[in-house]
Nucleic acid binder design. Sequence first.
RNA 1: GGACCUGUGGUGCAGUUUGGAGUGCACGCCGGCCUGUCAAGCCGGAGGUCGCGGGUUCAAAUCCCGUCAGGUCCGCCA
Length: 599
Amino acid sequence: MTVPPTPTGATSMRTHLCGALRAADIGSTVTVCGWVAKRREHGEHLAFIDLRDHTGIVQCVIPGTVDVRSEYVISVQGAVRARPEGTLNPDLPTGEVEIGDCIVTILNSAEPPPFAIDDRVEVDEGIRLKHRFVDLRRPRMQANLRIRAMVNHALRSAMDRQGFVEVETPLLWAPTPEGAREFAVPSRLHPGSCYVLPQSPQLAKQLLMVAGVDRYYQIARCLRDEDLRADRQFEFSQLDVEASFVTQEDILGFVSEAVLDAAEAVTDERPEPVPRMTWAEAIDRYGTDKPDTRFGMELIDLSAVFDGTEVKAFGAPCVKAIVLEGGGTLTRSKLDGLTDRAKGLGAKGLAWFRVAAAEGADRAEGVGSDWPSLVLDSPLDRFLSDGERVGLLSATGAGAGDLILVVADEYRTACTVLGHLRLEVGGRPVSEGPYRFLWVVDFPMFDGVDEAGHPIAAHHPFTMPHPDDLGRLESDPASVRSQAYDLVLNGWELGSGSVRIHRADIQSRVFAVLGIDEDEAMSRFGFLLGAFRFGAPPHAGFAVGIDRLVAIFAGEDSIREVIAFPKTQSGSDPMTGAPKALAPGLLGELGLQVIPPRD
RNA sequence: GGACCUGUGGUGCAGUUUGGAGUGCACGCCGGCCUGUCAAGCCGGAGGUCGCGGGUUCAAAUCCCGUCAGGUCCGCCA
């Protein structure tokens, strides 16, 4: 992936950019500015400086000595010339040329950097973050920042083109005790009271629909005080979208257009239209609501094979399996590790079967389910009937050298545990191509129940139930689908959205099922429900996680690599030292007092 | 809240299993040499509380306990 340099880059101090010089520039007298990437001295008559700016490196030839060190900031004036025969450097985009007879002006000296500014060395992330301004000087990080800017630009263009209007919403909002933990901001003018930073502009954008904006978007910063991961930071950016007088179909179209534009902007290639899958199918085939469809290893249902089995371990409502091709070589300790992992994920256990060719059997081809040319190697094998062995092999299609992993449990547990194991043994880094977008639709309206026995909203309480299921809202809520949908890319959830409830009668029914009475609803969401009485149009929306989208396009497995100044996993910033204790005076002004932690 | 991995000159590592002198490698840094190098080359040099604290031991980078930091994951993320 190539990031195009700034058009000319010319300023009062320079005429050209380092990485942009080519054979066509031969003969030009140029002035370039940048950092000394490398200095090579050859005695008193010749020295080379590799000068680096954000576009790349160019070789400067000094007819003498020069007193510069790594990372000195200099400007160089000289004439672009062809390199002498035999000294071209094919590894450098500027490798056909050099700047000759250079006059060097030192703009600033520099201490040696704490680590090499070089993509080839892996440096401890804590050290990188402490000196992030140095880390960002590395070409890879420069490229990541620019890819992010390209993605933002492409997303904005796509939304503008589709008639959306960019509206900014407040960062200081009111607490909405639902969903993610919120960051609180104490109020000076109202001591003891707090604003919260929005976990998303969800309610604000719905109010904009009531306001008649019709089509809203924003590249919005969202803040959630939840534990961090490779794909999660406290603060992250979303392409936030909401539109009126639309159905789910319209939203999928708008958002597809934007993300495919972004993909095309970065890769010069437009992916295929985004395929769709229902939530139920995703769980059944991949054991997750965010399937990585770059590879197979789909879940195989063995419930029929082990119906009425004598094997105690398989006496469960659901028996499912995955097959790892060539996995027969996995060591016993690795398999024990997988078993621990399965238990950690909530399964009662994990059964494994190594498949091998039977003694004297023809191994040439087509062993497949061709029992009895195959034998099973497993602690459980001696408990299986012949019929179960045949059924296991034919249902899975496993061949010699393969490994079958089986989980028997409740349906959802069996699916999700195998979904995790599938990624564990067969998964690839998210950053590896190709790009496999996927819409997951028809999410359930509710997922699980709370302590009081009320269903828990799977998305949020303003999500419109699927029209076909509305009649079962009270009688069988667990079976009700919602008009909620997720966008998935290479196994990462890129974003989610829904059609919202705009009618008070349906909203009341949903609140009732959730166990939220009218008083509670008014105290929590009163301003939204109140606004809805003044003419709320049918509306729906979506939000795309930009950090994740950019990370995948940039070939990175962590969103920290595409964020200029991210936090560590423990939520601190080694560069600024944040978070820090507040000075007592400021605490007092905010009406706050620190309670020492108890041990 | 929990599990696991990592922590050794500025950087990246080896050494830890099996305790025996801070022993080694690469890069960087400092000085010298070098007129076509490009991760330059050659010669010399400096640079270490082995994350921190405690314990075991005649003796700890190494074994044990605790703790801190970075990372991966579970919980959490409507």
